[in-house]
Design a protein around this nucleic acid. Structure first.
Lengths: 160, 160
DNA sequence: TATTGTTATACTCTATAACTATA
DNA sequence: TATAGTTATAGAGTATAACAATA
């Protein structure tokens, strides 16, 4: 099997390497955030809100990235905990904006600080160049995989 | 907020970049494998079995990496579908080994081929050096984050 | 007509804790 | 005593499809 060859192709190794690194990060984050009662994915939502101003749920879903119905379920959980507030969109009657409450901002800052040791640990064996290269390459990978949807959709359109 | 500074620290960007790339890969994989009725995570399990010989559930959990009870739930699903077979361990009466059935091997090869276009797409904007660097750096990140558990456990032990 | 959000629904993965059997 | 696996249980995220309200 090509796969078990000794001349291992690095391309073939990317998926599992990516998965292992992400899951390690995710689990460390879940553990670190659990005392605040927030999951790693909820942290990502809070971080996205902390970066942008009040976003519509649709924008939030696009940036996380996640599914709108998933984002809604997460928002409901976070709203119950008082970390997030939703309000009608000022001009678009269909839309609702989501934003951090004061408590949400405070919690986010605590979580960001709690995550600092994880980020430090993640790069502990990396040079500064490695860290920069990692972000650059990951961005390209994500873009290529995401843009592929558009390419395929276009191809599908052309066929039909 | 440090976070919104224009001199963005690449270390701070790693978690979200890693997440975005992984989720893009995960979703593409789920979509590609769905016609075979297999999830991206189940594919990882099959791949792990395809690489090693019959593994105990514990070893499988360690390598994926995942939780033993999660692995068991996945194995039950895959066993029902006839892709995996469990058998008593030859020498350890507590343990059970898991291995691909003939159908599982066939399905795995089909899935591997179906995944080829995803891997190609993932690296479409990368040089060969980028791909090699990515795997190297991701491995370091995963190791640093995983070994941290041991470090923390040791520190905890020392304290108590 | 298309878009935003909601709702209902279902499934997978995840993980803890208590338990049995074996080492 | 420690380890391998099972079971029960719970929760979170994921995503689809049908729907209402609005653009």
């Amino acid at each position: 099997m090509m796969f078990r060859s000794h001349v291992m192709n690095s391309i073939a190794e990317i998926p599992l390497a990516l998965r292992a690194a992400y899951l390690a990060l995710h689990r460390q984050s879940d553990a670190a955030f659990s005392e605040h009662g927030v999951t790693a994915d909820q942290f990502v939502l809070l971080e996205t809100l902390a970066k942008g101003e009040a976003l519509t749920q649709r924008d939030l879903a696009l940036r996380m990235p996640s599914d709108p119905s998933t984002v809604r379920a997460m928002l409901v959980l976070l709203e119950e905990r008082g970390l997030v507030r939703r309000a009608p969109h000022p001009t678009d009657g269909r839309a609702r904006t989501a934003a951090l409450t004061a408590a949400g901002q405070r919690t986010f800052r605590e979580l960001w600080d709690a995550g600092e040791s994880i980020r430090t640990q993640a790069v502990s064996e990396l040079t500064a160049d490695d860290a920069k290269a990692l972000v650059r390459i990951l961005r390209k990978v994500a873009t290529s995989l995401t843009d592929g949807d558009a390419v395929l959709a276009k191809r599908k359109q052309r066929v039909s």
